[in-house]
């Protein structure tokens, strides 16, 4: 229990905390303002005027749609692979103790513990050694590798909270492993998997460091944006794309939060 003098923070602490929070959010707000500016040659502030024109222009851009489709496709496939690999290994690691358990955890965490460029370069050189041409699948290989940990962390946290007696009861009543999984385990871990899947999707959707190295000519939406960042050619369209990318990742993140807020915390920070 907390004592009464503990409940009021010193003003300086409160100010520093709120300023820190603002520091994390104001830059993102800026993206929303710039998406509607009438200025199209510079990053002028304050915007000389506001318009909805660029939303329409972006809507009619086939290259943006192409990149968007590729990003969604890669994120969807990678998330599915990560869900399978992450759930299975989480079940193994949390249900039993075995030789090499720590190694398995390390193996799963490594792709996000090491800087992304290492994963990227390693995969790229492996593709060239094995003569694998770049395609959607080379991108997926990279993405799924670092998405596994997100699903895994969420699933492990949930498995630890789920009691094993339910599983034993189900088996005692004559259900086989698959029925037990379908009717007992899956309903128990479903929200954790959904949350892990959403975060994996968000992670894959906006990943760029590994993607630039594992994509050939294909441009995912972040790669499209990166090109614009390095050599700005169509600022208004980039502004709108930035806003869209933010919103597409924002929704699954928020959903994930509401799915796991009771009890579990979001694990597996890191990209």
């Amino acid at each position: 229990m907390r004592s009464s003098q503990d409940s009021r923070a010193p003003l300086s602490l409160k100010t520093a905390a709120v300023c820190g929070l603002l520091f994390m959010h104001l830059p993102i707000l800026l993206i929303f303002i710039y998406a509607f500016t009438t200025e199209d040659k510079t990053y002028q502030w304050p915007p000389p005027g506001f318009t909805l024109k660029w939303l329409g222009v972006t809507w009619n851009r086939p290259d943006v749609w192409e990149a968007m489709r590729l990003s969604l496709k890669v994120a969807a496939i990678s998330t599915c692979i990560a869900l399978v690999l992450g759930t299975l290994s989480a079940a193994a690691v949390s249900r039993s103790k075995f030789f090499g358990r720590e190694t398995i955890s390390l193996l799963i965490i490594l792709p996000i513990a090491l800087p992304g460029i290492i994963t990227g370069i390693a995969l790229r050189s492996a593709f060239s050694i094995a003569d694998i041409p770049f395609s959607v699948w080379t991108i997926v290989l990279g993405h799924a590798t670092f998405c596994v940990v997100v699903v895994y962390n969420n699933a492990v946290a949930r498995f630890r909270r789920t009691s094993t007696s339910l599983v034993e009861a189900s088996m005692d009543l004559g259900a086989n492993s698959f029925q037990t999984f379908r009717y007992i385990i899956l309903p128990n871990i479903a929200t954790a998997l959904l949350a892990g899947g959403m975060l994996a999707f968000a992670l894959s959707f906006d990943e760029v460091i590994v993607t630039t190295l594992t994509a050939g000519q294909q441009a995912t939406l972040p790669i499209w944006m990166l090109e614009e960042l390095v050599r700005p050619r169509q600022r208004p369209v980039t502004n709108v794309v930035a806003m869209v990318v933010f919103l597409v990742t924002f929704v699954p993140i928020l959903l994930a939060y509401y799915l796991i807020r009771d009890g579990d915390h979001v694990s597996g920070q890191g990209k």
């Binding site: 905390a17 929070l21 994390m24 959010h25 830059p27 993102i28 800026l30 993206i31 710039y34 510079t42 990053y43 002028q44 502030w45 304050p46 975060l199 968000a202 992670l203 959707f205 906006d206 990943e207 760029v208 460091i209 972040p222 944006m225 990166l226 960042l229 980039t238 930035a242 990318v245 933010f246 990742t249 924002f250 993140i253 928020l254 939060y257 979001v266 920070q269 990209k271």
Partner: peptide
Amino acid sequence: VFYVGVMLPLWSSYLVKVYAWKLILAKEGI
């Protein structure tokens, strides 16, 4: 507020965040 306020920027798009700073630091920027 604090929890979501930290989690959202953690997971939201890396490139969009970098882009926001390009807007902020531009000569004609905010």
